[in-house]
Design a protein around this nucleic acid. Structure first.
Lengths: 205, 205
DNA sequence: ACCTGAACACCGTTCAAGT
DNA sequence: ACCTGAACACCGTTCAAGT
């Protein structure tokens, strides 16, 4: 519309937003620094000031993705009622929703390279994981989840949900089956503690 | 060594083998049709006869990967002893071993695009899944696993193992933690049936 | 401090031509 | 049937120069 000033002003953000759009609409393979620069209305070498190379932009995109994922998991927990089973289910569902809405982004987020190279991406990923960890602690305090190293239980839950997401986005599981898989998974996690509660009851009788 | 004939003779296989090597050593992003042609000693347009484009080569690579994965899961089941818990653990471990040895290949295998485009890749992936499915049926017949739609239980197991693999290759879980996660996971799957067995016992008392 | 424009080496893809 | 070589449009990356 209006002619742009020489300095874009917010180039980094503009590039990341356009990149996120491209990934969503055309997949991560379609990312191109030159094309992004063109779409944002800047010379092809301008992005260089903000991203050393394409890989750096991808890492930044992954990091932003983990930040959004963490926020959405956090929102899901907060919005859920007091019942723990419901909270667990809501969190897992939020993860899967993110995974299916942003399949290409999630694929990029779990691409091994960023984590090796960008400590910041790794850190943001861990903050997303922290939401799950906190939920696990809550479930353990309520006696609903297996008492064991919460890190360990949390990682297994994270893995399970991520695995369901991977199967869905890769087409090996139908979108219609997701809900039952998620509820099977969350039920499984409540099984160990329930089993021990059962023992306690039977010992009393 | 000897000068090559005009016809390579086995170009398709040679390209796939070199591509697998490249993915293993340098990652999937490093794949280049021109470079592969050079390494195999053929003109840059020769691959075109065998792979319509780079994406087609990647799909073929993914398919070969699922074939290998299926074979290794199958071997793991066959080599394991009669005890079901051990068979389950052996299969899950074989999956994780493949995932860590061939991290970049697994990432490529689960890239959504192939499955959408290549029915053959999808089919080979399902044959790998069939090994897990068969194991689930075995566990159900032995009364060790939850009786429910085996497809559903199998998919959850597949998802869990794939999720653990994703967390490891993305660096969010240490390689040293893998074994305990796998054994936690397999134990969890044997929990539902154990729980009901517990109930049966307590009802009798 | 931030951006431009020319330059370089590389790539995927196409196609007429060779064996 | 299979492969070559020139051609085209594109890309990532670099760097001296502009504001």
């Amino acid at each position: 519309m209006t002619d742009r000033p020489y300095h874009h002003g917010n180039l980094r953000t503009a590039l990341l937003e356009q990149a996120a759009r491209t990934v969503r609409e055309h997949g991560a393979d379609e990312l191109s620094l030159r094309e992004l620069a063109r779409q944002v209305g800047v010379s092809h070498s301008a992005p260089r000031r903000h991203f050393a190379d394409l890989q750096a932009l991808r890492a930044a995109l992954a990091e932003a993705g983990f930040a959004r994922l963490g926020a959405e998991l956090s929102n899901a927990v907060d919005a859920a009622g007091p019942d723990f089973a419901g909270r667990l289910q809501a969190t897992a569902s939020a993860y899967i929703r993110f995974a299916t809405d942003e399949a290409a982004l999630l694929e990029l987020m779990f691409a091994s390279k960023h984590h090796e190279q960008s400590a910041k991406t790794q850190e943001t990923a861990e903050r997303a994981f922290a939401v799950i960890l906190e939920l696990i602690r809550e479930g353990q305090a309520a006696g609903i989840l297996d008492q064991g190293d919460p890190e360990r239980v949390g990682k297994l839950l994270f893995a399970t949900v991520q695995g369901i997401a991977a199967l869905v986005t890769s087409g090996m599981v139908e979108a219609t089956q997701v809900d039952e898989l998620v509820s099977d998974a969350t039920r499984l996690f409540q099984c160990g503690a329930a089993q021990r509660a059962e023992k306690r009851v039977s010992r009393r009788s």
